[in-house]
């Protein structure tokens, strides 16, 4: 199991954001993306998750191996914690939600509707969902938002267990989780489209003169 990215370029809303991104993450490793707001962390993660096509370059990863947790937790407010998790377990063909509950100490909240959870509890549920996917490559976008210190530690432990089990994880976060991880700063890969005469190459409407 390995995820390798070669010379990847991403666009957001039709505009170039990142170019020339390359890295490899092996089984048991984690990669943390850094960079200022708007540099393209979310765009890169969404591209890796297959939610948007890459503008150039390629991503090598075994098929159906990625699980993704974005900014939104994808919870249904009317459903209980159990029903929310059970749905995703069924969608991924895994039935057991017990490990996910244990990972984030959610047993007490089992029958509470997601609407009644606090922001932090919702986040815990959203992150616990990754355990029921049974997929080896975990992608997180700002996972620790609205988590307190204790739960941030629980999250780090969950990721560490996943890595120890041969999985791999990619995340955009500014917090040091205490997990051994490669750090990739995206700032140098920013594609501002102003790099001289070849600026905007590939954009049919910037090429040449009218």
């Amino acid at each position: 199991m390995r995820l390798s990215v070669h010379d990847l370029a991403c666009r957001r809303g039709g505009l170039p954001v990142l170019a020339g991104v390359s890295f490899t993450v092996e089984a048991g490793e984690a990669l943390v993306l850094r960079g200022p707001n708007g540099v393209g962390k979310t765009t890169l993660l969404r591209t890796l998750a297959g939610l948007q096509p890459a503008a150039a370059g390629r991503v090598e990863v075994p098929e159906d191996s990625i699980a993704y947790a974005g900014h939104a937790d994808g919870l249904k407010a009317a459903l209980s914690v159990r029903a929310n998790l059970a749905f995703w377990a069924a969608a991924y063909g895994t039935r057991d939600i017990a490990p996910a509950l244990a990972a984030f100490d959610l047993e007490r909240l089992l029958d509470r509707p997601a609407a009644d959870l606090s922001a932090g509890q919702k986040r815990r549920l959203g992150l616990a969902r990754m355990t029921v996917t049974g997929r080896p490559v975990w992608i997180f976008d700002e996972p620790t938002v609205s988590l307190d210190t204790a739960n941030t530690r629980l999250f780090a432990e969950m990721v560490a267990r996943h890595l120890a089990g041969g999985g791999l994880a990619l995340m955009a976060t500014h917090i040091d989780l205490g997990i051994a991880a490669q750090v990739l700063d995206l700032t140098p890969f920013r594609d501002t489209g102003t790099g001289g005469p070849e600026a905007g190459a590939g954009d049919a409407f910037l090429d040449g003169s009218f």
Partner: peptide, 11 residues
């Protein structure tokens, strides 16, 4: 083209 040029300028 105008849209693309403006976007480039913004970035």
């Amino acid at each position: 083209r105008l849209m693309a040029l403006k976007a480039r300028e913004r970035l």
